[in-house]
Design a binder for these strands. Structure first.
Length: 882
DNA sequence: CTCTTCACG
DNA sequence: ACGTACGTGAAGAGT
């Protein structure tokens, strides 16, 4: 049988696992107080790789200690690295125990790194005709790839890997695997703390290697190079380059005392492994072990609810768990598959949703004194409402609570979410119902009912610990006073829906179609052939190969034809302007005319969006089916779509109010910057005020529209976590100018500068950032070795408290608004939220009332150190509410 | 099912 | 030297 060898870089993978589950550090502890996140992650990776590779032979290599032949060669090798956390080191011995239970060889060798052991064995395996897979978190090992050895580098978490073959290395890096060490030799390696040739980075190295093949090749030809700074650096740093290459070179002949013959893998010792899992408190792995050993899954007890035993529900007088199964995501239209209700291990299940309408059930559901524990209360409310049932007080919503605890846990599948919280007695819907076209509610009552009963059991089991965590995070008010009432308000808005006039849309659609075919013909003439203008690939071919226009930007897969590129090309050829025009109309037509028409419910001529309350990383809502948060407004052509959005009654109008510069006001508040706060308190035009400050202007008259535009871009940039490059691209200035703008900005607004520095530091220390309402976002990448990932996390750390606090504020305003509309007995209905804007429909005569009421509710939603400003508009359609 | 593009705040 | 603004959803093309 063909030999398949799996080699694992133990330290590197364990380290990846540790950081992948770093924000769960406290959840992963066993009864002895041992942290287990790295062990758990390592196990996940092992299972994953064994399943993928099906190895006949295996070995996990570890580093033997701090000193190696490399540190002897160069004292500072891997110097300057942060100290390994104690929570990590304590887990290493247990990872080796885990491997023993698995029956996997592990090995370390004094003076050598794990890489060298792997390199040596991979070499032997290649010679012996094995197929080898190397697993590591370290990209440098890709130098080991050959036709028979692939290197799998962990990319995200521990179970997702990128597989490097020689072809993939070539494609990705532009060099052969063998040349990686020459590359490292020239550039050095900051994370391992050794330098290469001064001023030579990846780009330059690539050029040199393309021309000369290797470091040796470079130096054979160095004398012949024409005089340049680079040549001087090359000559000066010859020794450094040679040394760096040696440091980067993985040994293929380490004096190891294991051989290929010792690596046979026969599968785990199940008893030993079970014992280990029990000690580590790994419930889910234990369960999988039992499934594999054909031990039957523990059955769950339930009662089938019928019209004959409804009276049994009377036993629930304090709280019930409830779950309504709707097979498709859109709960406005989905069928009903069944439901489950009960408490404390007594579960009642039925497929017959008609039963819900019987008083024995509906009274229970609509009761305000008997509280409900559910998964996704908004979905449940809308579903029940379609059956004519009100959902009364909800105490616990597993979906909402999970999201608040960690915005990354936003799966909409109860089973997966429960698993994330360490609860393993509920398979995912995908497992029970299937996926894709095969997805279906099981015909077998036992299977289906057990699954529903398990869902209730999961909700009940997780409730106490999750609520406790919520309190520990100081998030109970966020949950009780914001997200839960928010869910109710959103359900009401979604059910209300907004009327869309299909006649208006259809008329626009036929106009667009006509114009499209005209422009299409012109484009074909200019191109000299017919092609699909909507295909970036075909369009790229025409523009850059046939017509030879200059290539400004490339994407991963070809030429970029994005707007900013085409705008630069417009003066070159008339076809470009026509393409831009075509694109614009085509987008409006397909997404907003055709798409919106598809979404209109024939029963009421309305669209009923769904707001996703547990999706965004910042606390904002998102809107789907259809998305009503991105209806065109910036360009007149598209803005006309808004004419189709009309009130649902004659004599009514659309009314809208929006926060003016809410994010900058939040910025002024949370940074405490005195200068910025003063501008808002004085009621100044903030962009003009910023312009006067950063450009040092004496009078407001000096603020030209262009200067104001630039200041506005800087203000936005600050909110996004600015970079000089980003700003320069945005307003078309040089990077140097952008940098000087930013410097002036921070000089003029020192509070903002201090805040930005602090928040990044805070994110580093605690691993997350918070909004004014204690909404929390974890930023695991803040510890990343990769400059890119880390920088992204840092910008996110700066932006999230601002964007998220603004989201908190409008949510609070919406809850208060809904209360007031009811209290004042108004017919006005809140219909839409677009991040900083609320849209209503109301009888004409209520408009004057709303003009006072809505802004006053919105601007007093929370008390900040700066005033909030609200502007209102109204008209016969959404278009006219401007 | 991923990529690119483009609509919004 | 590195390679970039923050947060979303939908459509169409092409694998």
């Amino acid at each position: 049988m063909a030999k398949k060898l799996l080699l694992i870089d133990g330290n590197s993978v364990a380290f990846r696992a540790f950081f992948a589950l770093h924000n769960q550090l406290e959840r992963f502890t066993n009864a002895d107080g041992l942290h287990t996140n790295a062990i758990y992650g390592f196990n996940t990776m092992l299972d994953h790789m064994i399943k993928a590779v099906e190895p006949t032979d295996m070995l996990v290599a570890f580093d033997a200690g701090k000193t190696t032949f490399r540190t002897k060669m160069f004292d500072d090798y891997k110097g300057g690295r942060a100290k390994t956390p104690g929570e990590f080191s304590e887990q290493m011995p247990y990872i080796k125990q885990l491997l023993d239970a698995y029956g996997i060889q592990h090995y370390e060798l004094k003076d050598f790194e794990a890489d060298d052991i792997i390199g040596t064995l991979a070499g032997q395996a290649d010679a012996a005709g094995y197929t080898t897979t190397v697993v590591t978190g370290d990209r440098d090992l890709t130098q080991l790839t050959t036709d028979h050895t692939t290197v799998a580098v962990t990319v995200k978490g521990v179970s997702e890997v990128e597989r490097y073959t020689p072809e993939h290395v070539q494609e990705k890096l532009g060099i052969t695997p063998k040349q990686i060490i020459d590359m490292k030799g020239l550039t050095g390696d900051t994370s391992d703390n050794y330098p290469g040739v001064t001023k030579v980075g990846e780009k330059t190295a690539l050029k040199l290697l393309k021309e000369y093949g290797s470091i040796e090749g470079v130096y054979e030809n160095v004398d012949a190079m024409k005089k340049s700074k680079m040549k001087e650096h090359l000559i000066e740093d010859h020794d450094l380059a040679t040394r760096a290459k040696v440091l980067a070179t993985i040994k293929r002949d380490a004096p190891i005392t294991v051989g290929l013959a010792d690596l046979a893998y026969a599968g785990p010792d199940v008893d030993k492994l079970a014992e280990f899992y029990t000690e580590m408190d790994f419930q889910s792995f234990l369960k999988k072990l039992h499934v594999q050993s054909d031990e039957p899954e523990k059955p769950i007890e339930f009662t089938v609810l019928t019209s004959a035993n409804l009276d049994e529900l009377a036993q629930f007088s304090d709280h019930v768990d409830f779950y309504l199964e709707m097979p498709t995501p859109n709960y406005h239209t989905s069928a009903f598959a069944g439901f489950a209700i009960g408490a404390d291990g007594k579960w009642f299940i039925s497929r017959d949703v008609e039963l819900l309408m019987k008083p024995a059930v509906s009274d229970l559901l609509s009761s305000t004194s008997i509280t409900k524990d559910v998964f996704d209360m908004k979905r449940t409310m809308v579903g029940l409402n379609r059956l004519g049932i009100q959902l009364g007080t909800v105490d616990f919503d597993l979906l909402l609570v999970s999201y608040l605890l960690d915005t990354n846990d936003n799966s909409n599948d109860l089973g997966s979410l429960a698993e994330q919280h360490g609860y393993s007695d509920l398979p995912s819907d995908e497992v029970v119902y299937g996926k894709g076209v095969k997805r279906a509610i099981p015909d077998d009552d036992q299977v289906f009912f057990s699954h529903l009963a398990r869902k209730l059991a999961a909700i009940a089991a997780l409730k106490p610990e999750l609520l406790k965590k919520l309190t520990a995070n100081e998030q109970a008010p966020l949950y009780d006073d914001i997200e839960k009432p928010m869910a109710i308000v959103l359900a009401q808005m979604e059910m209300a829906g907004i009327t869309v006039d299909s006649g208006t849309l259809k008329a626009m659609g036929s106009q667009f179609k006509e114009r499209l075919s005209e422009i299409e013909q012109t484009i074909y003439q200019e191109a000299g052939e017919e092609f699909n203008i909507n295909s970036p690939k075909q369009l790229g071919h025409i523009l850059f190969e046939e017509m030879k226009l200059p290539v400004i930007k490339k994407t991963k897969t070809g030429y970029s034809t994005a707007v900013d590129v085409l705008e630069k090309l417009a003066p070159e050829a008339p076809i470009v302007a026509n393409i831009l025009q075509y694109r614009q109309i085509s987008k409006i037509n397909s997404t907003y005319v055709v798409g919106l028409l598809d979404a209109i419910h024939s029963s009421d001529q309305k669209v009923h969006t769904r707001y996703l309350q547990t999706l965004t990383q910042t606390g904002r809502l998102s809107s789907v089916d259809p998305n009503l948060q991105n209806i065109p407004v910036r360009l007149e052509e598209g803005r006309k779509i808004r004419k189709a959005f009309i009130p649902s009654h004659d004599g009514w109008q659309i009314f809208s109010s929006d926060y003016s510069q809410i994010e900058l006001r939040v910025l002024a508040h949370i940074t405490g910057d005195a200068n910025m706060q003063e501008a808002f308190k004085e009621g100044d035009d903030i962009h003009a005020a910023t312009a006067m400050r950063i450009f040092n202007l004496k009078s407001p008259e000096d603020v030209t529209p262009n200067i104001r535009r630039q200041a506005k871009a800087v203000n936005f940039g600050i909110v996004y976590g600015i970079s000089d490059y980003g700003l320069s691209q945005n307003i078309g200035i040089t990077r140097k100018q952008a940098k000087s703008f930013i410097d002036s900005y921070f000089r003029e607004y020192p509070g903002v500068k201090a805040y930005m520095e602090n928040i990044v530091k805070t994110a580093h220390e605690q691993g997350y950032v918070e909004t004014i309402s204690h909404r929390r976002r974890y930023l695991p990448d803040i510890h990343s070795k990769s400059f890119n990932q880390r920088s992204f996390a840092e910008r996110t750390a700066m932006n999230t408290p601002i964007q998220g606090s603004a989201a908190d504020i409008i949510k609070i305003a919406m809850i208060k608004m809904q209360d007031r509309l009811k209290a004042e007995g108004l017919k006005a209905t809140m219909l839409l939220q677009v991040h900083d804007e609320l849209i209503f429909e109301a009888p004409k005569e209520e408009i004057p009332v709303l003009e006072k009421l809505v802004p006053s509710v919105m601007d007093s939603a929370v008390k900040l150190d700066v005033p909030l400003k609200v502007e209102s508009h109204f008209g016969d359609t959404w278009y006219d509410a401007k």
